[in-house]
């Protein structure tokens, strides 16, 4: 008898931590006699708030990788033949492709919602890539520098937030974000090595791209 009550109590507490059961939280009651739900069986034991946080995180990361992919695609369309920076951009692009593939796999696994504005990020990234590449190699590298600064910083912020959540379900996500942050910062170093600072109007250009990326993050967090 005691055990049965105890089990009911534990079930109730676990259920109330589930996204599927925001309802029970809303009504301040335990839905006893309810069978286990799917999330519980899958051992995803995050609070609704944490789930929301991770949902928006993954959405932003994926959108960022889409943007980065299309920036490199645009740059390659113009600078693909260049013997000096062509292979470097290609190499960075390959890494971004891998990042995007990883986030495409993570989205269904964590049941995150992809960004609704994906076509806009694709178009904006491509235009940015083509535009900066047309301004010259240095401007293209300055663009990479600005974008990777924002993305690297943002990954760092996310990692800081994730470290507060102690849960085995997201240990994999932490590892991935850590690795990707290092990759992005490596791209930043590469861009600076290839004369990013010598670009025409380096200051205003990077400032515009910087703030544009931040605005995109702000929008993607919501949509």
């Amino acid at each position: 008898m005691y055990l049965a009550i105890r089990r009911n109590y534990i079930n109730a507490t676990i259920i109330s931590f589930n996204k599927l059961h925001t309802f029970s939280v809303k009504y301040n009651s335990s839905l006893k006699e309810e069978p286990k739900n799917y999330d519980q069986i899958k051992n995803i034991s995050l609070t609704p708030k944490q789930k929301q946080l991770i949902d928006s995180m993954i959405r932003i990361d994926q959108a960022g990788e889409i943007g980065a992919n299309y920036i490199y695609k645009g740059q390659m369309a113009i600078l693909g033949n260049d013997k000096k920076v062509g292979p470097i951009i290609q190499e960075m692009w390959e890494q971004e492709k891998y990042h995007l593939k990883t986030f495409d796999e993570i989205i269904p696994r964590y049941r995150a919602r992809p960004s609704f504005l994906r076509p806009i990020w694709e178009a904006a990234g491509f235009i940015l890539g083509v535009g900066t590449a047309m301004m010259g190699k240095e401007a293209a590298m300055a663009c990479t520098e600005a974008v990777e600064t924002v993305i690297g910083e943002h990954y760092n912020d996310q990692l800081r937030e994730l470290l507060h959540i102690e849960n085995n379900d997201i240990s994999e996500l932490k590892k991935i974000i850590k690795q990707f942050r290092d990759d992005e910062l490596h791209h930043l170093d590469t861009a600076v090595d290839f004369d990013a600072k010598k670009a025409p109007l380096h200051g205003p250009l990077t400032a515009i791209i910087h703030n544009g990326c931040k605005a995109a993050i702000w929008i993607t967090r919501r949509i």
């Binding site: 799917y38 994926q62 495409d104 269904p108 049941r111 609704f116 994906r118 076509p119």
Partner: peptide
């Protein structure tokens, strides 16, 4: 609808999701 697609094993991560 989200639950249905999740249970059906949907893995789309682009506009197909919507």
């Amino acid at each position: 609808v989200d639950d249905m697609w999740y249970l059906a094993g949907d893995k789309s991560a682009d506009m197909n999701w919507y």
